[in-house]
Design a protein around this nucleic acid. Structure first.
Length: 437
DNA sequence: TCTGGACCTGA
DNA sequence: CAGGTCCAG
């Protein structure tokens, strides 16, 4: 279990360099701290002129890496403001957050009047889902999947956030048939246009753009389809106004929040009744905000990696709802109750801008793909790969074709795969992931 | 069930 | 074409 409560870094009245020493003491107890270690980063010149307001999250690097969590597509509300530093909005608070060597530091730089300072720590811990220990899960996933074990060291601390349900739903309503930079802009315009502005509390140190809470459903009810089209939403404008209307009829934010308590398939079914919400968007909303830790949003990337490593028979098939369910089941069979979290790490490793990190991966897999389906059938079938497909509720669901056991043949393509990987790794020696901070 | 096409915008 | 969804055959 993580330390679930962040501790104050120092008293807000303390300022300047002496504060940094206090930082050392809090972080490391009475142990002496080497000069040049992480606290200097928090207090580095050009950033904060004092340490006031900074807190530690208490998350070692294997539990949380901002770089693998904030800009990787589960939220579009963070802006990178420096090297491993971000500013974003969590509920009614504007948060500045920075990656340290083996922890994460944060402070509140703006807030709504009703957002009590006493709850800051709890809000952060909740948002980062700190009650779920990632490192323990990673060990079990690595044991049950060779591919995961191979790529994971390069993507440590890829943690699932626990975002606000309404905000998450509308963020991913914007995501369909769209690319990340544009989604970012759409969400930004939705907030600045109709959300409540959050006053800065440290405006003397911050010269960036204004920040806004995500608009409430009541605020969104005032937005017309024409407004949204003017804001660049395209055909998704109708999805937004339609979903707003339907959500309000169903009971608004409170109704959406009740889906957290129920089973994930109920949440998905309910979400899919909203216009513009299909299996992918529903799974995103449920995994990123409704505690549905087992859910896997299956997009083209996830389908590609699933057919490559777990379900080779499905290669080339269209992404129908039925196929979505098969991929979902395969992930749960492989990774268990937190399959959605495991999927997140695998998903990041597929992103174009991260793919080069794992030596040999792309090349070896491309070669395998080129060798055709007969070989690919056997790739990475792994121990007990799909011998039993377990439903999300844990019940046996191996009645379909996804449940048939796959053969494991010695000297088959699996060994071809590993030899290819080794070959590549010889050509491009692995850099120690730890060094890639 | 599954398939094909349309749908806004901009990188 | 892009981290889909909807609608008709």
């Amino acid at each position: 279990m993580l330390r679930s409560t962040a501790r104050p870094l120092l008293n807000s009245t303390i300022n300047a360099r002496p504060s940094c020493r206090e930082y050392h003491l809090i972080k490391h107890g009475s142990r002496p701290v080497r000069p040049g270690s992480l606290p200097n980063r928090v207090c580095s010149a050009g950033m904060a002129t004092d340490c006031a307001g900074w807190h530690l999250l208490g998350t070692p690097r294997e539990e949380l890496r901002l770089e693998h969590t904030l800009p990787t597509g589960q939220s579009f509300r963070w802006r990178e403001t420096g090297d491993d530093e971000y500013i974003g909005v969590i509920g009614q608070r504007v948060v500045q957050i920075r990656q340290l060597e083996d922890d994460v530091a944060w402070r509140i730089i703006g807030r709504a009047p009703q957002a009590a300072e006493a709850e800051d720590t709890a809000v952060l811990a909740d948002y980062f889902n700190l009650s779920t220990p990632l490192a323990d899960l990673v060990r079990t996933w690595s044991a049950s999947c060779d591919h995961f074990a191979r790529i994971q060291p390069y993507f440590q601390g890829a943690r699932m956030l626990r975002q606000d349900p309404t905000e998450t739903l509308f963020q991913f309503l914007c995501s369909s048939n769209n690319h990340i930079s544009r989604i970012h802009g759409m969400v930004e315009r939705l907030c600045s246009g109709w959300g409540t502005r959050l006053p800065l509390t440290r405006s003397d140190e911050y010269g960036g753009p204004a920040h806004h809470a995500f608009p409430t459903l009541d605020q969104l009810a005032a937005v017309s389809e024409a407004d949204l089209r003017a804001a660049g939403f395209g055909y998704r404008a109708r999805f937004v106004t339609g979903s707003v209307a339907r959500l309000r009829a169903l009971g608004g934010e409170a109704w959406l929040a009740t889906l957290r308590a129920g089973p994930p398939d109920v949440a998905v079914a309910a979400l899919c009744t909203l216009p513009g919400v299909g299996p992918k968007v529903a799974a995103c909303a449920a995994l990123f905000s409704l505690d549905a830790h087992a859910l896997v949003p299956v997009d083209v990337h996830v389908l590609a990696l699933a057919t490559r490593h777990y379900l080779p028979a499905l290669r080339g098939k269209a992404l129908t709802p039925a196929l979505h369910a098969q991929v979902q089941a395969a992930f749960v069979a492989r990774f268990g109750a937190h399959a959605g979290w495991a999927h997140n790490t695998l998903f990041i490793s597929e992103l174009a801008r991260y793919r080069g990190r794992v030596p040999g991966t792309t090349r070896a897999e491309e070669v395998l793909l080129a060798r055709g389906s007969e070989v690919a059938e056997e790739v990475d079938a792994g121990p007990d790969a799909c011998a039993r497909v377990v439903g999300m509720d844990g019940s046996d669901a191996s009645t379909g074709k996804g449940g048939r056991a796959r053969r494991k043949r010695k000297g088959g393509a699996a060994s071809v795969a590993s030899s290819l990987v080794e070959e590549q790794m010889e050509l491009a020696p692995t850099t120690p992931p730890q060094a890639a901070a």
